[in-house]
Design a binder for these strands. Structure first.
Length: 262
DNA sequence: CCGTATGTTTCATT
DNA sequence: TAATGAAACATACG
């Protein structure tokens, strides 16, 4: 699930659920999601602390308190949910923060590919989230040109490289390239000015709609809406879509709209 | 048992 | 140095 739009939704969830509230109790159901901190220390350092305004960079959610900062990544299956602390915990709830108003903020994750970190300083945060490019949501056309300059890799791999641009994952990468009519295997240095223009426009439009929906929309007029079809066809031209492996992930594209040579 | 899944890191190789 | 592919991480599902 989680790419930039999903994590932006989690940021809103955290803000409306927990911002301004104190942690009455931190519960660790599965310490397997904790990184660099024990369950005991997480409880000791966070209980009694008050959540401030959360921020997001790419797929990372950064939640400061009046003590340490909680840093979260959702991997492929993680999510953040807000409910009443009386509700039964879901099967995949790994950590929960019971708040001073009876609400509970739950970190749920099936696969535990990522998890939760605790940071004491800004340097800690930087070290945890690693090398990140600028957030995809605030990327100008000039930024894009600057980021792509000098690169020779495939455009799909480059767009989804968090150290180049933060926030784009496999679904967004495919969706943006389909909107821009650029083949995912094209190299960055082969893109024309016009193609980089289309790429930037597609990136902005796909992100705007996705952030509004808090996910890449499952819209039949979008590529992603056809992704799970047994025999998917292009919503634009009707030709069969093609699947292939690029940058280690399954890519989906239209061989008619997105030509490899052009 | 096998392959696949919206992520990231590490390692070997080109 | 840049870039790529494969593997690993943990888990569910068909």
């Amino acid at each position: 699930m989680p790419e930039l739009p999903d994590v932006e939704g989690f940021r809103r969830t955290l803000a409306s659920c927990a911002q301004g509230h104190r942690v009455a109790r931190a519960e660790v159901a599965d310490p397997g999601v904790l990184h660099g901190v024990t369950a005991r220390r997480l409880k000791r350092d966070l209980e009694g602390r008050r959540f401030a305004a959360p921020r997001r960079h790419g797929k990372w959610l950064i939640a400061p308190t009046d003590g340490p900062t909680v840093v979260l990544h959702f991997g492929m299956t993680g999510r953040l949910v807000c409910g009443a602390d009386s509700e039964p915990a879901g099967r995949f709830q790994r950590v929960a923060f019971d708040l001073d108003d009876g609400h509970r903020l739950g970190y749920e994750d099936q696969r535990k590919l990522q998890g939760i970190w605790l940071a004491a300083t800004d340097d800690d945060i930087d070290r945890i989230i690693g090398d990140q490019g600028p957030d995809a949501l605030s990327l100008s056309r000039a930024d894009l040109d600057r980021l792509l300059a000098g690169r020779r890799g495939r455009v799909k791999a480059t767009l989804t490289d968090q150290a180049v641009i933060a926030g784009l994952g496999n679904l967004l990468g495919d969706e943006i390239l389909w909107h821009a009519r650029i083949h995912p295997r094209r190299t960055v240095n082969s893109l024309t000015d016009d193609e980089r223009d289309r790429l930037h426009t597609a990136l902005r439009e796909v992100l705007r709609a996705s952030v509004r929906a808090e996910r890449v929309p499952d819209d039949p007029d979008w590529l992603t809406g056809r992704r799970d079809d047994p025999d998917p066809h292009c919503p634009r031209c009707g030709n069969p879509l093609r699947r292939g492996r690029i940058a280690g992930r399954t890519s989906l594209w239209c061989p008619h709209c997105q030509r490899e040579d052009a």
